[in-house]
């Protein structure tokens, strides 16, 4: 793969976005940037399995839920600090991905997509029935938990910084994966799995690893999000719509590119923000999202980055 230069502008951009609420000390800005960062991370990690490897993980939100529940339970029950709890959440998600992947990654195409929805729904209904995880109502923090972070207000800022760090790490990792030999192997699987195997790519191991990577980061995100929210419940943690949002952002930005998920996530969050503020659009935002998605699928399957790359050949090194 030809080395591109997208990190040179992506990282400063993400740092600038993250710094904005810190500089202005604006809580409103912080909340919206938190969402942007969260979306960027989710989209960039989904892109590893969806965009690089070509496996349509439709139920990808399951890893966000697993990470969220794992971390939340550790903090709630044993008072573990957010950082180790978050890492445990990420590792739990990655391990589940390895185990589940062992089975479902043998499936291809649409069947794989359906199986991942099945996995998400199965785990969601399982969690809904587990008493120690609070069943359908979920778990709630006692506010004392935030004390060791210097109070609730500081805890939320802490979560915010952590999210910014996780986002940057995710984008950097997704860049290095794409520009590595591993990434070349993944792309060859995406294009033709049988040909890749005959060319010497250990397709089974590569797919599993890609799946684990793309599960690890959503696990971290889930941990931070539910720490900040103070409660977790199955309907939030395994919400299929969020899965679709992730796919939407990847497609909008340009799947298989490093900058695509970032661009897609930022635009999606802004659009959603604008639509939700307007009382008319507020109720129509789903229909509008559907309409936009349809337009992308039909007329611009390469997303925004794909369009730009076609239009401006010189930008290709920057927009990979």
């Amino acid at each position: 793969m030809k080395k591109g230069y997208s990190l040179f502008w992506l990282i400063p951009l993400l740092v600038a976005i993250s710094a904005y609420p810190v500089v202005t000390r604006s809580v409103i800005a912080r909340e919206s940037v938190f969402l942007i960062l969260m979306y960027v991370t989710l989209a960039a990690s989904l892109n590893i399995i969806l965009g690089y490897t070509g496996y349509v993980s439709f139920g990808h939100i399951v890893f966000y839920g697993i990470g969220g529940y794992t971390a939340f339970y550790l903090m709630y029950k044993f008072g573990v600090h957010l950082i180790p709890a978050m890492l445990a959440g990420g590792v739990a998600s990655a391990l589940v991905a390895l185990a589940v992947g062992e089975a479902v990654l043998r499936l291809r195409g649409a069947i794989f997509a359906i199986a991942t929805i099945g996995v998400n729904e199965a785990i969601k209904s399982l969690v809904t029935n587990l008493a120690f995880l609070g069943g359908a109502t979920g778990l709630f923090f006692n506010f004392k938990i935030y004390r060791s972070y210097g109070g609730a207000a500081k805890a939320i800022w802490f979560a915010y910084y952590l999210m910014a760090a996780v986002t940057i790490v995710t984008v950097v990792v997704s860049y290095f994966i794409k520009n590595s030999k591993f990434g070349l192997g993944l792309f060859s699987i995406r294009e033709d799995e049988d040909a890749a195997a005959v060319l010497g790519v250990d397709t089974k191991r590569f797919k599993s690893l890609a799946y684990a990577f793309s599960a690890f980061f959503p696990g971290l995100v889930g941990a931070i999000f539910f720490f900040k929210a103070g409660n977790i419940e199955p309907d939030d943690a395994f919400h299929l719509i969020k899965s679709i949002e992730m796919i939407f952002m990847v497609m909008l930005g340009g799947y298989g590119t490093v900058s695509g998920p970032v661009i897609g996530a930022v635009i999606y969050e802004r659009l959603k923000g604008i639509l939700l503020v307007n009382p008319l659009f507020k109720n129509l935002h789903m229909a509008i999202a559907g309409f936009v998605l349809l337009l992308i699928v039909l007329f611009a399957p390469g997303g925004i980055v794909g369009l730009l790359r076609e239009r401006f050949k010189k930008l290709r090194g920057v927009l990979e």
């Binding site: 969806l50 997509a113 497609m251 699928v297 039909l298």
Partner: peptide, 30 residues
């Protein structure tokens, strides 16, 4: 929604039908 992408990879048709669903449910909710 489908005719244009009927021969494209699964991702396209999955998303095309999902868009339809979003549009119908979105309008329905409205």
């Amino acid at each position: 929604a489908l005719h244009r992408v009927i021969l494209a990879p699964e991702l396209s048709t999955l998303l095309a039908t999902y868009s339809l669903s979003l549009i119908i449910i979105g309008l329905g909710t409205f």
